[in-house]
Design a protein around this nucleic acid. Structure first.
Length: 668
DNA sequence: TCCTTTCGTATTTTT
DNA sequence: TACGAAAGGA
């Protein structure tokens, strides 16, 4: 406790009622949560298996587990739940699946699966061809987050577009249930609805959980908010930690006003503010405070720091996006050489992923090692999706989505017309596609080669399923991969032999991960392992192991929760930051919070850059400087470059020297 | 069935 | 500019 400040101690000690911790950026909120867990176990005598801590990301939950592990012994921590909202929802559904009409082994549709199902449905259900799938996906997600049922959506739909979406929503949900599947949103909304409507189940869970902690509370959506309320019940023993100024996911359904709502729903709510920042210089905090002051506030916060005042914030004007990237790359190289800074102490943040491209080219030119976060995740790789689809079908024979993905992967000479006939028959019989292959009646619809191919496949899959479930799962899965000769398929599909090898490696890694998870006692069941796998991104873990000396590149969104000594933010221009759509839709406040998040990532130095000209969609235009630059305190910023300035001779020489020095150091 | 052409569109994305 | 989807042709 000694190393906590008085406010933090108060937040840890207060356990008599509901508590809201308003934790400013860098104020040690994770410490408070982890200490509190230790305090609850060691000082308050609450058994660890009665404590639940909820986060939004796998990464945050891993970090929390690790830090709790340093504070209390393994024995004390036994049964402690630290998980993401979605994982918690999955665990609830797995135990209560019967009450929500799901069968054991239900599948989880990820975003891609949902989209492909919606694409199909929008063609079938609506007269308008090519209904905007993005729109549908968002709309349906919104409805689910707000706990709006398909029929409610239909009766409240405003306008024709929404009516159509409501129609697709209804068909989409019916499909999911027929496939014995849920989507990501269902992992939260189904348990919430279950608790809301089923007293027995609700009370059982309320009884189980003695204390609940929620991280990043400003990111909760309506359904998550209600889930928390239903889990804590009337005893209301919980701590939520959040910062309304760091709410940057409203566009995904997050409701930062849940922070305010909490005070209304729990009149006894105690509020503790953490305003001391342990991360940044005073100057950086002053700038951050100044920017965020332009937003209206329900809770006011003033971050302060005991660190020195620090360097001025630099704003660099560049000619165009290429010179901007070049300048940032050179700056990093220069500082590395001149001041002996490590590459890993730098981060470059930007609004949109596309901005990384120009920068990457320059970083490569200077041979600066870097790591781009974001991009395609492990589970969106086609080879992983394929193998997962096989496994999903093994666990859940009703998963038609998985069936369709793999029926011709690798090729089995089963084309669209055959599948259409099969689907028609399956629908008429009210069974899944896989089950339909086996029925005698199918011979009325299909004959000859197509029928034989289907039956051969279904027989093989039935045997494989049997092997995986009855015998040792891992060897059976490996056998399955050999049966379909997946390696050969990859060689045929991948652009090069090397790429194919890489993909096979990914597949092997997937199998290894399953083996490891099966080894842990908690998840003996292969079905449980496969379900859980979808929620975890294996790449993330791989990244963390690779803690080498690299400059970090990522979007402002992805930077939340992280920190670096030296931070660059690129593209401080109107229409980019704030983004054009945000200006149009008048969500400037969220953009400002994004800027605030970016500024508060920096520990020591902050450099902002903008361009005079930017090429976008092949056309050049002249962006205006971001309004957020005007909101910075003038005394604390220093402007460099006049907007149209070419690189000076001096800079070019310095650059050449730095480049040579780097080559030399690489050769050593 | 597969490959090419053409057209339209273009944030952020914890799970 | 650059990518994916849809349409058209071999």
């Amino acid at each position: 406790m000694k190393d906590l400040n008085p406010r933090q101690q108060e937040a840890v000690r207060y356990i008599d009622g509901p508590l809201l911790v308003l934790a400013g950026a860098g104020s040690g909120k994770t410490s408070v949560i982890t200490r509190k867990i230790a305090h609850l176990v060691q000082k308050c005598g609450i058994p660890a298996n009665r404590i639940v801590a909820v986060t939004f990301t796998n990464k945050a939950s891993r970090e929390m587990k690790e830090r709790v592990g340093h504070l209390i012994s393994g024995a004390e921590a036994r049964g402690l739940t630290v998980s993401t909202f979605h994982n918690l929802g999955l665990n609830i559904l797995r135990k209560e699946h019967k009450s929500v009409g799901l069968k054991n082994g239900f599948s989880i549709f990820d975003d891609q699966d949902s989209r492909s199902l919606l694409t199909e449905l929008s063609h079938k259900e609506t007269a308008v061809a090519g209904e905007d799938v993005d729109y549908l996906r968002n709309k349906i997600s919104q409805w689910k987050n707000d706990l709006v049922t398909p029929s409610q959506a239909q009766s409240h739909a405003a306008g024709e577009e929404e009516m159509r979406a409501a129609h697709v929503y209804s068909a989409y949900d019916r499909c999911l249930r027929a496939y014995n599947a849920v989507d990501f949103d269902d992992l939260i909304s189904l348990p919430t609805l279950l608790f809301r409507d089923n007293e027995e189940v609700r009370e059982r869970w309320q009884h189980k959980i003695h204390y609940l902690l929620v991280d990043e509370y400003q990111d909760t959506n309506t359904s998550q908010y209600l889930l928390v309320r239903l889990l804590v019940g009337r005893r209301a023993r919980f701590t939520v930690v959040g910062d309304d100024d760091q709410s940057i996911y409203a566009w995904r359904g997050a409701r930062p006003e849940n922070l305010v709502q909490l005070a209304e729903d729990y009149p006894a709510l105690k509020v503790v503010k953490l305003e001391q920042n342990y991360r940044s210089t005073q100057r950086i905090l002053k700038a951050a405070n100044a920017v965020i002051d332009n937003n209206p506030h329900v809770f006011t916060k003033q971050l302060w720091s005991e660190h020195g005042f620090g360097e001025q914030i630099r704003i660099i004007r560049c000619l165009n996006e290429e010179s901007e990237a070049d300048r940032v790359a050179m700056e990093i190289m220069h500082q590395k050489m001149q001041k002996g800074r490590d590459f890993k102490d730098f981060a470059v943040l930007y609004r949109g992923n596309f901005q990384s491209r120009t920068l990457e080219i320059k970083l490569q030119a200077y041979q600066i090692p870097y790591k781009v976060s974001g991009g395609t995740s492990f589970f969106s790789r086609s080879e992983i999706k394929d193998v997962m689809a096989y496994l999903r079908l093994v666990i859940n024979p009703d998963d038609d989505n998985a069936f369709l993905r793999i029926i011709n992967t690798p090729r089995r000479e089963i084309g669209p017309s055959t599948l259409e006939k099969l689907a028609g028959y399956a629908q008429q019989r009210g069974v899944g596609l896989f089950a339909a292959c086996d029925e005698m009646g199918l011979e009325q619809t299909l004959t000859g080669r197509p029928l034989q191919n289907l039956q051969r496949f279904s027989r093989w899959l039935a045997e494989t399923t049997e092997r995986i479930q009855r015998t040792d799962a891992i060897p059976a899965i490996q056998q399955m991969l050999r049966d379909i000769d997946y390696q050969a398929w990859l060689l045929e599909q991948a652009p090069s032999a090397k790429a194919a090898e890489k993909r096979m490696e990914n597949v092997n890694q997937l199998v290894e991960s399953m083996e490891r998870m099966l080894g842990k006692q908690e998840e003996e069941d292969i079905a449980a392992v496969i379900g859980k796998l979808i929620l975890i991104d294996l790449l993330e873990q791989r990244d963390e192991e690779d803690a080498s000396d690299k400059v970090q590149l990522m979007t402002l969104h992805a930077s939340k929760g992280l920190e670096w000594p030296y931070v660059f933010i690129m593209g401080l221009e109107e229409e980019l930051l704030p983004h054009r759509n945000a200006i149009e839709e008048d969500t400037i406040e969220e953009e400002r919070r994004l800027m605030y998040v970016g500024i508060t990532r920096a520990q020591r130095e902050l450099t902002l850059s903008l361009t005079a000209k930017r090429k976008q969609y092949g056309e050049e235009f002249e962006p205006a400087p971001s309004r957020f630059l005007d909101e910075l305190p003038t005394d604390d910023v220093v402007w460099e470059g006049k907007g149209g300035e070419q690189r000076s001779v001096e800079q070019k020489k310095a650059l050449g020297r730095a480049y040579m020095a780097n080559i030399r150091s690489l050769l050593e």
